[in-house]
Amino acid sequence: MSETSDDRAGSSRRSLYWFLRGIATAFSVPGLILSSAFIGFGGLAKESGISLLQAVFMVGTVWALPANVVLIGNIVAGASLPAAAFAVALSSVRLMPMVVALVPEMRTAKTRSWVLYLLSHCVAVTSWVLAMERFKRVPQDMRTVFYGGLGWTLVVVNMGVVAVVYAVADELPPAVAAALFLITPIYFLLSLWGSARERASHVAMVVGIALGPLLHLVVPGFDLLIAGLVGGGIAYLFHRKQQARATA
């Protein structure tokens, strides 16, 4: 055997190792929390008259949980397709900066861009927080492989979770169902707070969490967008002021 084919076998073994490590990471505590949130989502979808196949399709194509919840809300409200798409798009603007932050962490000179586009579909709060946290321990050239294992496992497992919920959801006691619906917001709150890069993100969270429901009463439909722009703007001004103080 020549040296190059030896190298190739070694590097594919290494890729397989990190791919499996990514899959294993999907079965960590944050992964389990996400699955319980998807149990709650499955209950909501079933209650809303969405079919099993449609719900599983939704999880696979939309993936981000808040976007799925917004989509179901619009379906139930009888919103038109453009209105629903607009609302979902507004609730998902955050995915862009999340991906922008993730891409430089896992790209190397050799990474093909279609790989990044394929991986970006898995970006949502859980896989993003997990990746940003675990990448430190993954070699730079293995991070796309690792994230592929992690992200796509989360997607596929939770498609299965929602399918199982459809089979048993009628038997969920009300106290359990209520708890499952609270898991999403409390989990998002804590993981987002913990993964904040700068103090300004905390300001953005405090303003956004209060403004969202208030604006929902005043300007339903545009509540998220306005809360995001106002909260983000205030937080950014805070950041600038903090920096000015640091350099002064």
Binding site: A101, F181, V207, G208, L215, V230, G231, Y236
Partner: peptide, 17 residues
Amino acid sequence: VRCVATALVASVIGNLV
């Protein structure tokens, strides 16, 4: 961008509660 994104998710959290 990150601040706006964070405030957006936070407002989703607020509405879910």
